[in-house]
Every structure is written in structure tokens, then in C-alpha cells.
Measured scan of single mutants.
Amino acid sequence: MGSVRTNRYSIVSSEEDGMKLATMAVANGFGNGKSKVHTRQQCRSRFVKKDGHCNVQFINVGEKGQRYLADIFTTCVDIRWRWMLVIFCLAFVLSWLFFGCVFWLIALLHGDLDTDYKDDDDKSKVSKACVSEVNSFTAAFLFSIETQTTIGYGFRCVTDECPIAVFMVVFQSIVGCIIDAFIIGAVMAKMAKPKKRNETLVFSHNAVIAMRDGKLCLMWRVGNLRKSHLVEAHVRAQLLKSRITSEGEYIPLDQIDINVGFDSGIDRIFLVSPITIVHEIDEDSPLYDLSKQDIDNADFEIVVILEGMVEATAMTTQCRSSYLANEILWGHRYEPVLFEEKHYYKVDYSRFHKTYEVPNTPLCSARDLAEKKYILSNANSFCYENEVALTSKEEEEDSENGVPESTSTDSPPGIDLHNQASVPLEPRPLRRESEIGSRR
């Protein structure tokens, strides 16, 4: 089982795998120059863009038009607004034209077009017409509009002379109601789609790998820009990579689940303020055997998904993003964004995407760390350097704002901070800030 798991979770494809794949392509008759073999020097295209759209195009789909027309309502909801407006206008105009032609044909076959009612006051002739005051196609078209929109100006009306005319008036009224219901329903469904809710759900630009509770963890940050909550919010993550099976089958995008606390339930989050999602790199993680150097040379993509129900409509929305291997910062942490004021908490989104480097973060893999092949620094050293990194950030910001350097908390000259780390230190809580992250 261990060997199978290692093969499945191998992220960085070796040169031997690339040569094996190329040999397979030639042997199977696919070596026509169009096949692409992804190596370390040639990274694959992003499968999920940063804005959440999937970078996929469908080609050679059989009976595409028929399949889309069979699900016309979903098609109308998914198309762009400009095409929705075109369909909206065409549906009414074509129905008016169709029934206008029908009423014109009825008048033509009944002989109503030969009668001039402007110079004739004989009401008996008017009563013999199928539709009064309809003696041309324009008049028939206007009567069709008046019937379907129930305008009723009063000059044109159907008589009991022709039952077919009466039937067409009733039929057009029913068709008009159906068109109204369909168009209004599609427009309302399109307006109520929770897709735009994703514009106020954000992911951090970069993911980070750092120590948390004595273990290497992959972390990324999510935030909600609205005050309205995302009900039943939960997160998922998958690692996408290519691999070759033991039988020699090439899988271009193998999807591997990344555990973010599904078993323990901590994948469900209360997204009021930005939260750091934590994936513990343990023996079940696809990143277990990867060191910093392996991450730098790897070719994979981590897709992160945030799902929840919109509070206003109770409709489920899904926000997506992805991180390539070069977008994962090893040995970094996110800057705090949640600050405790006197009577409330304040979230500073200008710090949302910012990170700071944490010294002495192990550069080895989580496996080597678990097997004690890498000796961690003293816990006080880690905490102290973590505090120094934050303090230096604040000093830089104070210097930019014009604060005198004498007010900063610099260490005395001639003292090495790293050498001082081995000395037991008193706890130094942050002056006014605390970061709330997901705790395992």
C-alpha cells in the first residue's frame, strides 16, 4: 500500500517518465508532432483561472445545437444578457408577425380586404367582416399587437362572423401568456443567479507553507467582502497533476483530494472575517514527500473551492481559484488583518494578500521532518523571529508614515537576534492585533 500511495502522490514527473511517455506515443502511432509532453521546463496551462473560470474549450460535440435547444431554459439562463435581450425582442416580434399574417390571411380569404370602410357607412358590411377595420397587412399586424398586449384601442375587434378568427384570438392570448411567463422566468432566474456573489468572495493571491502546531501546513486565505453571511460555508481543495499509471496509461489531469478537515468538520467555516484555511501535510497528503526545492521545480495546480448558500436567496454559490506551484510561498505567513478595537473588531483588507517571511522554516519535506531528519529550532526562537518579522513590518510602515526611528523597538546594537533566540524570552503579545485562523 505504501508503494502504491507514493506512486499515486508523486508530484514532480521525472525525466524517465517523460521519455517513457514519448516512447509510448511513438510506439502507439501518436508521434505526429502534435502531442505535447509536459516536462519541468514546460509548465501546463492553468486549468482553473484565478477568477474561477475553467480554462476549457469543448470541440467536436455531436448534436450540440439539439442538446442546447432541448434544455432551452438553461440555455437562456446561461447566455449573455445581450443575447437574452435579442431573444426577448424576437420572441414578441415574431409572435406578433405570425398572428398578424394569420389574421391577414383570414381577412384575405373572407374577402374583407376588398371592402373600403372609410367611404361605406353600411354597418351590415362591417358585421360581415371577420375582424372589423382590418383591410391590410398593417392593420392585421396592429390588431395582433393589440390582442397579445391587451391594449385594446377599440377600432379593431373580432366579430362572430368567422369562428376561426375567434379561435385565433383565444389562441394568441394563451401563447402570449406562455411567452411572458417564459421570458420573465428566465430573466428573473438569470438575475437571481448567485454567480455575481463570487465577486465579493476573495482568495489570497498566494498560498503559503509554514509551520503550525509543530507541523508543516499548506495555507491559503479566504474572505467575504459583504456583511451578509454565506450560510453553510465549506471549503474543498484538489491537486491536479499528470501521472502515468503502473500499466503505462497517461492521465493528463489526475485529481487528488486535499484534506482540509472534512473528517473532523473544520472544513465548515464561519466566514465573517478572513480565515486562513489549513491543510496539514501528513502522510496522507500529496505534498508529504515534497521539499522546498521540489515545490520550486514541480508542475501541478491546486484548485480551491468555497461553497455556501447566499443568505438573501438561499441559492448555492461556488467560488473557485487555483494556485500553481510557483504561487506557493515556502516559509511565509499571512499578515494579520483582524484588529481588536474598543467595542468592535476591524478588518483591514489592505493586508489581505500580504505575507511575511518566517525565518528558520524547515526546507525539507514533511516526511523528513516526521522522521527527525531535520532538527527544528527552539520553539522560543521560532516565536521570537516570528515577532521580529512582524515588528520589522510595523517599523517599515512607521518610517513610511514619517514616525521617528527613535520610537521604534530596535534591538541594541551589536546583538545578533538569531543568537539571542536560544535565550528564554518573556511572551510578547501583539500590541493591538490578533489573527483569527482556522485551528486544527
Rank of each mutant, 00 (worst) to 15 (best):
A129T: 05
V166A: 03
E400T: 14
I179T: 10
P413M: 14
D78I: 06
T317Q: 09
D180K: 15
M24S: 12
F88C: 11
I106T: 14
I266W: 14
L240A: 04
E341K: 15
K50W: 00
R67G: 07
C89M: 14
L240Y: 07
L363V: 11
S13D: 10
S136A: 01
I258A: 00
Q420W: 04
T316L: 15
D122R: 00
D116S: 15
H205W: 06
N206R: 10
I244A: 14
G18P: 06
L425R: 12
R82F: 09
N378K: 08
Q293E: 13
I277S: 02
Q238S: 10
I328H: 02
T150H: 11
I258Q: 01
I305K: 11
V347M: 13
G308C: 07
G31D: 13
M24L: 11
A210G: 10
S273Q: 13
E307N: 11
D119R: 01
F182Y: 12
D263H: 06
M188D: 09
Y117T: 00
R156P: 03
T75F: 13
T149V: 06
Q420Y: 10
V202D: 08
N135L: 04
R320I: 12
W83N: 14
R156C: 04
M19E: 08
C383G: 14
C217L: 08
F137M: 03
R221T: 01
C364H: 06
K34V: 13
V303Q: 05
S144N: 00
S406M: 13
V208T: 09
D51G: 06
A27W: 04
Y250L: 15
E247F: 05
K118L: 01
I256R: 07
I164W: 12
Q420L: 09
F99G: 01
R40G: 13
L369I: 14
N326E: 14
D348S: 00
V278Q: 04
F203L: 04
M191A: 12
H234P: 01
R236P: 01
K346D: 03
P412T: 13
R236H: 05
N28S: 13
N32W: 05
T317N: 08
L85Q: 02
S291N: 11
T159I: 02
A192M: 15
L287Q: 01
I106N: 03
S377Q: 10
E311N: 12
A129Y: 04
K373V: 07
T355L: 03
D284A: 14
F73W: 10
A25R: 11
K354G: 13
Y153I: 03
Y323G: 00
M191H: 04
D263E: 09
K227E: 05
S13F: 03
S285G: 01
R156W: 02
D368Y: 05
E396P: 12
A27P: 12
K372Q: 15
Y288P: 00
R197E: 15
G308F: 07
F30A: 15
K64E: 04
S173V: 15
V235G: 03
G18L: 03
R80S: 04
V235E: 00
D78T: 14
S392R: 11
S173T: 15
G414F: 07
I258S: 02
E301F: 01
N206S: 07
D296K: 04
K241T: 05
D254C: 09
E435L: 04
T355N: 01
N401F: 07
V77P: 14
V278A: 04
V304D: 00
G154V: 02
T317A: 12
I179A: 05
K195Q: 04
V403W: 05
L253K: 10
M168I: 05
N7G: 14
V134A: 03
F73C: 13
R351S: 15
C130T: 00
D254F: 06
C43W: 06
E433Q: 12
V169A: 04
Y344W: 11
E199S: 12
N360V: 04
R428Q: 11
G185D: 04
D213Y: 04
F270L: 12
H343K: 11
H234D: 06
S136T: 07
D257A: 07
A70S: 12
N198T: 07
I436K: 08
D368H: 05
E426K: 03
D267A: 05
E371N: 09
E426V: 06
Q293D: 14
V278K: 06
N297Y: 06
D257E: 12
V388Q: 14
Y345F: 12
Y349E: 09
N32G: 07
V358L: 10
G214P: 00
A421K: 05
D17G: 07
M24K: 11
V423W: 08
C319T: 13
V303P: 00
E311M: 06
P424C: 12
S365C: 10
T361W: 01
V187K: 02
R333A: 15
C54Y: 04
A325V: 03
M315G: 08
A379V: 09
D368E: 05
P163N: 03
L425I: 13
I295W: 07
T150M: 03
I305R: 10
A207Y: 00
V4F: 04
R268K: 10
C43D: 14
H38F: 07
S127K: 11
H279R: 00
C130E: 02
R80K: 13
V231W: 13
A233E: 03
M19T: 12
A325F: 01
S13I: 08
E280F: 09
A237V: 07
S35D: 15
F382C: 14
H205G: 03
I179P: 03
E16V: 05
L271T: 08
G261A: 06
Y349N: 05
V131Q: 01
C217A: 14
S273R: 11
F47T: 09
G2W: 02
D254I: 09
R212E: 07
F58T: 15
A186T: 15
N206A: 08
G176D: 05
D299M: 07
S321N: 06
L230W: 08
E327I: 01
W83E: 03
R333P: 00
Y153W: 07
G33Q: 12
K292E: 05
F155Q: 07
E335T: 06
V260H: 03
F143M: 03
V347T: 13
G2M: 03
R156T: 02
F352C: 00
A140G: 03
Y334H: 05
D121K: 03
K125H: 15
R5W: 03
C217Y: 06
N378F: 04
R82A: 08
Q318N: 14
R44Q: 08
K241I: 07
N326I: 02
D71W: 12
K346W: 04
E435P: 06
A421L: 13
E283T: 10
R82N: 03
E385R: 11
V102H: 03
I164Y: 08
I266V: 12
F103G: 01
G265Y: 07
W104Y: 15
K36L: 11
H343M: 05
S173W: 09
A22I: 02
L109V: 13
L109N: 15
L376I: 07
V337R: 00
E283F: 03
A421C: 11
F92P: 09
G265R: 09
L417Y: 09
L363N: 12
E16R: 05
P413T: 13
E327L: 00
G214R: 14
A314F: 09
L218G: 01
F73H: 15
Y117C: 00
S406R: 08
F103W: 15
N55K: 11
R221C: 00
C101A: 09
C157Q: 07
V337Y: 07
T245E: 09
F352V: 00
F92R: 07
N419Q: 11
F30C: 15
T313I: 04
E199G: 14
F30E: 15
N32D: 11
M188N: 12
G414E: 14
A210N: 11
D120M: 00
D294C: 05
I145R: 01
I87K: 15
L108R: 13
G402Y: 11
H418Q: 13
I256V: 07
M211Y: 09
R431G: 10
R268Y: 09
M315W: 08
Y344A: 10
R432Y: 13
R226V: 14
W220I: 06
T361D: 02
L287D: 00
K393D: 14
L290P: 02
L239H: 03
I244P: 15
R46G: 02
R243M: 08
E63G: 12
R351L: 15
P359T: 12
D410N: 09
I258G: 02
R226A: 07
D410T: 08
E249V: 12
G223F: 07
V303Y: 06
P274A: 09
L390N: 15
V175L: 14
I415Y: 03
G265W: 11
N297I: 07
D160R: 02
S411G: 13
Y153V: 03
Y374N: 10
F167Y: 05
G29C: 04
E396K: 08
N386C: 08
F98A: 14
S406L: 12
D289K: 08
T245Q: 14
V26L: 08
R333T: 15
R46K: 01
G223P: 00
E301S: 01
E327G: 01
